[in-house]
Design a protein around this nucleic acid. Structure first.
Lengths: 237, 237
DNA sequence: GGCTTATATTACTCACGGGTAAGAAAAAGT
DNA sequence: ACTTTTTCTTACCCGTGAGTAATATAAGCC
């Protein structure tokens, strides 16, 4: 009776195709939720509307998540996973400090242009439980330290001119984080164009004269692993 | 009977000194509100607590403001007033594009380190009525265009090397706006040090070789140093 | 004093939305 | 086919906090 469009991303088919794997549904919830949270803000977004967009009802969500806050945290965690992924890749690469910094800026900019990536900077940790908030704070500190580490590394190896890594990291991360606030898919700028531009723009001021500027080849961060984390929450029986 | 500390910023003296001018009370409400909104976030902050901090009760607030949203908007407006102020000053100054951009970055950075300044980027326009949200969006656009204008001006007068003003403005404004998210009074960095550093850091990449770099003497906007915060006592410790 | 106005309080309403209980309807197991 | 388990729905609870009504108290004014 409903005639959903074929491009409907929901695995609940309103009628009778409800047999997909549990994790796919979990993921669908998160994708819908992160979109709505970004669109309207966490507090204005209601679980009723999340459910509605998935053709289900609110209580059904509680089969997959313990609470609204749980959903928020899982969204954040997916974004953080991406970041952890490309940081690990860059850490393992053989480049000087400037090269790593460029790669980091590039990947981070791209991530900021995704929903889960933007959630890293647009969600408010104060909406999380103390325990989850602690996790988030630790992760944020980790990202900040990665920026500083690459800069310090660059200074040490001569690819970056001496400066205060702390302030430089603040300035760079600020530019990047802000992308998550203004970037809109479908706008005049593509994520790729922004990433390319920022990778150059935010590092040129730091490069030493003698460090040449090779076109930043994309790091092997195209992991695109499964997006869903192992299902944990199950009502204890 | 209450024995409030003498440094209590509230004009309601709990006992009987309630005769200050109406506008002073309005302002006191805003100072308390902006602080609480930043501290806890707009949605978590309750008017009950705002009132409590002022030694009054919630309904008393409605003598001065129509609604919670009204308070939010007025906080934002005070911050915006500051920005409008120094932009007007810089616009009227006789400098090349690079000089104006530096002055803008400096003043903007200082403002981001104030409560009302931070509210410009930490408050969510979606919490405002459509009418007020429209005002905010227009003001944001105005700020963005000021950045772009100074950059374009600098390119035209040769003080800034050719670049895309749009992207450059995004990058610079991003760094600056982010200050409002991480800066904490009482931390290791003073607002002044940050402003000095950023004014140089965010513009050095744009300067042409031939444009010398005079030590950025503090711009003339120093005169109007944070009107509102002038009355706030120093860190409560 | 007594009258008016401004300001504050106490005690309430009420919409909203997160979360739960009980049980129906599928799916899966046998 | 029958039982069991998982998934989902209908119908509710209930805490919260913005906003209001009625009223008290103080201030300003003659």
């Amino acid at each position: 009776m409903d005639g959903r469009p074929a491009n409907d991303p929901s695995p609940w088919m309103t009628f009778e195709n409800r047999r997909r794997a549990r994790d796919e549904k979990r993921e669908a919830v998160l994708r819908t939720a992160v979109q709505l949270f970004l669109e309207q803000g966490y507090h204005r977004a209601t679980l009723n509307e999340v459910a509605e967009r998935l053709n289900i009802t609110k209580p059904a969500l509680y089969n997959y998540f313990r609470s609204k806050e749980d959903i928020l945290f899982e969204c954040w965690a997916l974004g953080q996973e991406q970041v952890d992924g490309f940081i690990a890749a860059i850490d393992g690469s053989q480049q000087n400090g400037l090269g790593k910094l460029r790669a980091l800026v590039h990947s981070y900019a791209e991530t900021m242009a995704t929903d889960f990536g933007a959630s890293l900077v647009r969600f408010d940790p104060r909406d999380l439980s103390p325990s989850n908030a602690k996790t988030v704070r630790a992760a944020k500190r980790g990202i900040d330290q990665t920026f500083r580490r690459y800069i310090a590394e660059g200074i040490a190896d001569g690819s970056i001119k001496p400066c205060d890594p702390k302030m430089a990291a603040f300035a760079i991360a600020g530019s990047l984080n802000w992308i998550g606030h203004w970037y809109q898919r479908g706008g005049p700028l593509t994520a790729d164009a922004i990433a390319d531009d920022f990778a150059e723009r935010l590092t040129e001021g730091l490069a030493t004269a003698r460090s040449n500027k090779p076109r930043p080849n994309k790091p092997a961060t195209k992991t695109k692993k499964s997006v869903v984390r192992a299902t944990t929450h199950r009502k204890t029986k």
